[in-house]
């Protein structure tokens, strides 16, 4: 049975920063805009994490906006 399309995500590499992840996930976009987009799609990570900005190896990081 084929799986329906769901929102694409990646997981951070060891010690990867949000800038590095944004560059990897959204190549060709200006860095600042790419970081903003990643953050706005992933507020579960970027709103309230302690310490702020910490990326975890287990995080689901969406690389596109919601499909709905």
């Amino acid at each position: 049975m084929a799986l329906t399309t769901q929102r694409r995500f990646t997981t951070p590499g060891p010690d990867e920063t949000v800038e590095e992840l944004a560059s990897r996930a959204l190549p060709g976009e200006p860095l600042e805009a790419a970081v903003d987009r990643i953050k706005s799609w992933n507020l579960h990570i970027f709103a309230g994490r302690k310490p702020a900005g910490l990326l975890l190896g287990s995080d689901v990081v969406f690389v596109e906006p919601p499909l709905g």
Partner: peptide
């Protein structure tokens, strides 16, 4: 409820403090 450029929406659940 957050609306993204392009019109897609999603729900962001915030705990009481946030």
């Amino acid at each position: 409820r957050l609306r993204h450029p392009g019109g897609a929406e999603n729900a962001v659940v915030l705990d009481e403090d946030v």
